[in-house]
Amino acid sequence: MLKEHFKKPAGEAETEISYEKPQAPDGLFQKCDGCGKIVLQEDIENNWYCCPKCGRYYRIGARERIPMIADENTFQEWDSGLTGGNPLQFEGYEEKLDTLRKSTGYAEAVVMGEARICGMRIALGVMSAEFLMGSMGTAVGEKITRMIGRATAERLPVVLFCCSGGARMQEGIFSLMQMARTAQAIKEHDEAGLLYIPVLTDPTTGGVTASFAMLGDVILAEPGALIGFAGPRVIRQTIGQKLPQGFQSAEYLLKHGFVDRIVRRERLRSTLGILLRSSGYGRKES
């Protein structure tokens, strides 16, 4: 159930896991929302977009992620211009998308393409929380489905960085259908004997968790990432009690057997390299 776990109603104080994005900050100095200390922007960027003082992981989008993961200048975007419509004719939705496109520079909440990791060619997708909390509408579903389909046809492994509040409410039932479409594409990729690695980043919830995020051959997660089906606030309301510290964190999922490894950003590229190589990729390639 994807109930109301995307945004806080105005006025409610959040006491546990914050849905406010700790965005990689702009400007020369920033106040870290983890430790409250003043930190140099440059130091954050040089520290894998983590706070140099307290180690807090900031949310990053495709722009920051791709250079961090891919071999230099190997990324080529697929379906860059693909966008969706307004299937429910929801008032103000198109304007909202236009504004977001201008402010974020992204056409949609996911960027797809191909790249090389340690020399091995892969299909790579990255979701960006800056764009409507990475919510999954038809365009996101279509891009992911096409990317996986092309990877199946070209026999490429898929690495997909998940980051999503869940369904794109404004697209109603069409948003829901994307869960089935993406899962179906992964099934075909799987049947073809190809490797799929979702990397779960903060936050991965709702319909994304209940579809492609949980269907990897190997599932990796970033430290401290919130990962769950229902959001913490919904669960709190449903059961009427406080949730324990660390509930739905990446570490909690590891403990309960739902992710394979928690990997720090500085180790991600080499970890992916090992997983790719050990799954038979890169043998015939230059």
């Binding site: 949980m214 229902a230 449903t238 509930f247």
Partner: peptide
Amino acid sequence: AFCGMEAEERGQG
């Protein structure tokens, strides 16, 4: 689907 703690613990998603 049920939105409870145990459901999350056992992997609802």
